[in-house]
Simulated scan of single mutants.
Amino acid sequence: MIERFLELEDAVKSTLATIDRDLPKITSEEWTILKELCQILKPYESITKTISGEKYCTAALVTPMCQGLKNVHQKLSAQHFSDAVKHSLIRLFNGFENRLGNVGKSKTLQTVTFLDPRFKSMVFGNSADDVKKNTTNLLSQRIAEANRTAEVSANDQFSGDSDELSIWSDFDKTVATTQPQGSYTSIEVQRYLEDDILPRNKESLQWWNSHKIIYPNLAKLAQERLCILASSVPCERLFSKAGMVITDRRNRNKEKKANMILFLNSNHHYVEGEKK
């Protein structure tokens, strides 16, 4: 709103000059304050729009964007602004620190950002090794669980006995706990880190789709984690769409049909992309 008002500065000044009514005048100092406010609010507008997306990975962007916002704040603090704007800048940053100051410590967001080939461990600084270790451990746990499930299923089909009564039960448990999964997952994670960084304007999900054969276990983990949303905005959009579908004139639509319509409405861009 402020930006649009500044675009109309000449028109506003001309209009106020021709009106005979006793209206409050906007001084040159106030115009300067508006321009400075627009400048310091620009980064917050950018991050809000980006985090509110729904057609790309948003949770992976939280950590690097928050760090970028801190860097921008330091640059803005070094510039010369009026006292009112400086006070607004301080309050903005204090509010940011109170709400998102510890966002980098979230293990969920750390894993998501690490699995994004555009960032990997580049944004974690001194804690990069810890994030790598946590992701490797998480990957090892998933592989071990998948192996145990596969072994139990295969043993049930082969013997027809339950796990507790099977003569191979103790042996299978011992094998499952002694499989050297750690070294394999460490190699896969290290190869992933040594691969080229994906340009920031590229799509990370497409990258994983083309590299799922090279990093099979990491690709499964990325498929599970990269779908995490950074905000509730996409969900709120879906509720708005539901209000347009489920109306008084469509009150005979059943739940299954309404769900199908909303699903198609939310995913039509993927279908159009495949057709192209």
Rank of each mutant, 00 (worst) to 15 (best):
K276S: 10
E7R: 04
S204T: 08
I33K: 09
F96W: 15
I40Q: 00
K133R: 15
K35L: 01
L8I: 01
K13S: 10
S14L: 11
S88G: 01
F158A: 09
T185I: 10
S88T: 07
K120Q: 02
Y215C: 12
G243I: 03
S210Y: 09
P180V: 09
A78L: 09
S159R: 13
H211L: 11
G53D: 06
Q74R: 14
I40W: 03
E164R: 02
I214R: 15
M65N: 06
T185W: 01
F81I: 08
P199Q: 08
R148E: 14
T48L: 02
A84M: 06
N137S: 07
E151L: 15
D195L: 02
G53I: 01
R118G: 08
E272F: 09
E188V: 09
R118N: 07
L264I: 02
T149Q: 12
T32D: 11
P24K: 01
D248F: 12
Q141F: 08
L69A: 06
G160L: 11
A150P: 04
W31Y: 09
T15F: 06
E188H: 10
L92V: 04
S121Q: 11
D116N: 13
T63E: 12
I228S: 15
S121P: 06
K133G: 11
T178Q: 02
L8T: 02
E164L: 07
L6W: 07
T136P: 00
K220W: 13
K75D: 15
G182C: 00
W207M: 03
A59G: 05
S52N: 00
Q110P: 11
C38I: 02
Y44M: 02
K55L: 03
S231M: 13
E272T: 12
L76P: 02
S106V: 09
G125W: 06
Q190H: 08
A144T: 08
R91I: 06
D10T: 06
P216I: 10
D116C: 10
I47D: 03
N155A: 14
G160W: 10
S240N: 14
G273Q: 14
W31F: 08
G125M: 10
K49M: 00
S204K: 12
I228C: 15
I2G: 09
